[in-house]
Write a protein that binds this DNA or RNA. Structure first.
Lengths: 222, 222
DNA sequence: TCAAAAGTGTTAAGACTACACCCATGT
DNA sequence: ACATGGGTGTAGTCTTAACACTTTTGA
C-alpha cells in the first residue's frame, strides 16, 4: 500500500531524552540501532508518528517499545526540523524529555533496537542524526528548571533521604550547596514528609527517610 | 505532480503568534482566511513547511507573505499535533511567537489572506482550527517570561520613556507597579541609556527618552 | 574510641516593598 | 495659577547566604 499527496510531505518522528542519576552522574537512556541508517550506532529512543496518533502518545509508545520504560511523565522539549537532519528523507522530530529514578523500571531492548543502556551525558558515544544536539538542548532545559522548580525530585525513588536529594541537586545543577540551607528550603516547600523509617547504611548515624506528599504535585515554582 | 510514500505522512505547518501593545491592551496579529477550510474566519498567520526549508525559515516566510511583517525575532513555542485539529488531513503545527512594537512595520494582507488586523487578546473573534488554544499557550509563556526576563522591552520602539515601559509591563503582566521601584529596577539592569532627547507631549514636564544599549541583548534573566 | 555521615540555629548582608513630595510644561 | 504626568530617596521588612559543632551508628 502507498500514500499519495499533491505536495511533498515530511515525515514526523518523536525522540525522547530520558535522564536519570546514578553514582553522582547524570545519565541518559540510549538505544543501539538495529537498522540503517546509522545501523549499530547509539541513538535516542523514538520513531515515526502514526497517522491517527497524537504526538504525545507516539512519544510514550516509542519509548516503551524500544526501551521497556513506561508510564513516566514526558514533557515536550523542542521541534527539530533542519532539512538534512535525516539521510533518508525530510524528517521533523518533536523531542520530549523526562526524568526518572534509576530503579523504577527495568530497561530492555525492543525489536528495533539491538541494545539499551544508560550513558553518562558528559561522555556520550558518537550518536546518530542530530541527537547530540537534542540531548544538549534537553540538558540546558533541565539545568534551568532545577533552579526554579522542584523537578529534581522526579529523580528520586519512592523513599529517600535529604542528603540524597542534596547530592542529586549538586550533581545535576553543579556546584555545592549548604546543607542547612538546602534542608530548610526543601522542608519549607512542604512537599515532602517523613516516613517514620530510617535508612541504615554503613558505620554512621541512620538518616530519616522522606517521601513526596503528592507524587503528581512536583513542579511548584519557587 | 504528486508524491508517494510507503507510509502515510502528516502535513507540517507553522503558525505564528505576534503580540504587540496598543492603547494599553495586548493585541495579537490575525489574518482573515480567503480559502476553505474556515474560509472568511480569522486565524493565525502560518502555512505549510516546504520540503527543503527549515521550520524557522518557514515561520519567517509565511509571516511575511501573509502579513507583511518581516525581520522580527521568532521563538519556537510548542508543537500541536492532535490527529483531528485540521479537517483536511493530519496536520502538525509548529507554533512560534514574537513581540513587536506597533509602529515597526506596516501590516498588509498577502495573496492568501483577505485581511489582516490586530485583535485584543481578551476579546478574540471565533478562530479557525485550534488557534485559540495556541494563542492561550503563547500568552501564558509571555506572561511567565515577563517575570524573569526583559522580553517586555521587545515591545518598545527605538526610543521610549520609562513611564511607557512601566505602563507596558502593567498591561502585559497585570497589576500596577511602584514608579520609583520600577525605575530603579530597570536602570539597575544597565540595558537602557538616555538618548539626551526629551519627549514633549501635552501640558506637563517632558520625559527623558531612552534607548536599548544593545538591541539583541534583550533577555537577560533577572 | 574512632570514623563517617546526620542533624541542627543564628547572624549579617542584601533584596524588595512601601511610601509623598517637588518639577517642568502647556493652557 | 492650575492641571498633568515626570522625576526623585529613605526606612522597614523579608529573603538569602554564611557559618561549626553535636549526635548516632558500625567497626
Amino acid at each position: 500500500m502507498s500514500y499519495t499527496y499533491d505536495y511533498p510531505h515530511p515525515a514526523v518522528t518523536t525522540d525522547i531524552v530520558v535522564f536519570t542519576v546514578e553514582n553522582d552522574t547524570l545519565k541518559v537512556l540510549l538505544i543501539q540501532r538495529k537498522v540503517a541508517p546509522y545501523k549499530g550506532q547509539w541513538a535516542l529512543p523514538g520513531g515515526f508518528v502514526r497517522i491517527e496518533e497524537s504526538i504525545d502518545a507516539c512519544a510514550g509508545r516509542e519509548l516503551e517499545e524500544e526501551t521497556g520504560v513506561k508510564g513516566i511523565f514526558l514533557e515536550q522539549l523542542y521541534t527539530f526540523g533542519d532539512p538534512n537532519r535525516d539521510p533518508r528523507e525530510r524528517v521533523i522530530s518533536v523531542s520530549y524529555y523526562a526524568l526518572m529514578p534509576l530503579d523504577d523500571v527495568d530497561i530492555k531492548p525492543g525489536t528495533d533496537s539491538a541494545d539499551v543502556g544508560w550513558f553518562d551525558v558528559d561522555t556520550l558515544p558518537t550518536l546518530a542524526f542530530d541527537h547530540e544536539k537534542i540531548i544538549s538542548v534537553a540538558r540546558d532545559r533541565l539545568t534551568a528548571k532545577m533552579n526554579y522548580s522542584t523537578v529534581g525530585l522526579m529523580f528520586m525513588p519512592e523513599e529517600f533521604t535529604l542528603s540524597e536529594v542534596q547530592s542529586l541537586y549538586e550533581t545535576v545543577s553543579g556546584g555545592s550547596r549548604d546543607k542547612r540551607n538546602f534542608r530548610k528550603w526543601l522542608l519549607a516547600l512542604g512537599i515532602v514528609e517523613e516516613t517514620g523509617e530510617k535508612k541504615v547504611e554503613g558505620a554512621h548515624r541512620p538518616a530519616m527517610l522522606y517521601r513526596l506528599k503528592d507524587k503528581t504535585d512536583v513542579m511548584i515554582i519557587k
